[in-house]
Design a binder for these strands. Structure first.
Length: 258
DNA sequence: ATGGCTGAGCTACTCAGA
């Protein structure tokens, strides 16, 4: 089963790229972030024509997450955390997989820049609530998959120039500690588990020729609860979509479980 | 190089992203 996470930076601006990508990679489940649209304008029919059902948590202009799936999912939840700013950043669902139930948690973590502003506080508060609720879920359920745009550079190796980001909302130790805290609840960063020293990225800025210079960062992640690691067949960052015309600034990360 | 680009909402320009 192929589960893919992709921050598409507007589902409507990217629809042709996304459809081509689906035809190329044939995902079972696609976790989308930054759809930047309200539910009523989400291209549900376009995905239906490709054989997918859509579960959408949109909002006007900004943010928004969705799950596209070949098979129906259960217990769709848009209230995983209480967001004081009412931003659409998290959607969860339950997937039946080989007599297990896996909780899918699709997230778009706040950016948090500039640091030491209310935006940074929002990111910290959001992460704190998120970790608390994951902690509660870990006690009840053991099969959890968290994927999406974390807006966190986990370690120095995960960005082209760490010096430039060590006091940024994506690279500050205080934020990276939150990521470790999450992992310490009983998860693995699947990409890093399978690629101990590899330096690959999931995001490149649109400006300054970042893509051409490979000035990127790894901020999109798959965290899998420890008991599911035995089911991992492969994990891959697919750089192709970032090289296309009119690309998202993020590229998909692809997990296959068996 | 704290933004050189891109998208949404909207029609002139701001806000947001990382």
């Amino acid at each position: 089963m192929k589960i893919i996470s992709w921050n598409v930076n507007s589902v409507r601006a990217r629809i042709e790229n996304i459809k081509n990508y689906i035809n190329d990679t044939d995902p079972d489940i696609l976790l989308l972030q930054e759809i930047k649209t309200q539910n009523e304008n989400f291209p549900t029919d376009e995905f239906k024509n490709l054989g997918y059902v859509s579960y959408v948590f949109g909002q006007k202009s900004y943010n928004g997450v969705a799950i596209i799936s070949k098979n129906e999912l259960n217990n769709i939840n848009l209230d995983f955390i209480k967001d004081d700013l009412k931003q659409s950043r998290i959607i969860t669902a339950e997937l039946k997989f080989k007599k297990k139930i896996i909780v899918l948690v699709n997230i778009y973590v706040p950016n948090g820049n500039p640091v030491d502003t209310e935006k940074y506080e929002y990111k910290k508060t959001w992460l704190k609530k998120f970790i608390n609720n994951i902690k509660k879920n870990v006690q009840k359920k053991t099969n959890i998959l968290i994927a999406g745009d974390f807006n966190i550079i986990p370690e120095e190796i995960d960005v082209h120039d760490f010096k430039r980001y060590e006091n940024d909302a994506l690279g500050r130790l205080e934020i990276r500690k939150k990521y470790r805290e999450l992992i310490n609840l009983g998860f693995k960063d699947v990409y890093r588990l399978k690629n101990k020293t590899k330096q690959e990225y999931t995001f490149w800025d649109y400006f300054a020729g970042s893509w051409q210079k490979n000035n990127g960062m790894r901020i999109d992640h798959f965290l899998l609860s420890n008991n599911l690691i035995e089911n991992v067949k492969s994990i891959k960052i697919n750089k192709k979509p970032r090289s296309k015309e009119k690309p998202s600034d993020h590229t998909p990360i692809e997990l296959e479980i068996i």
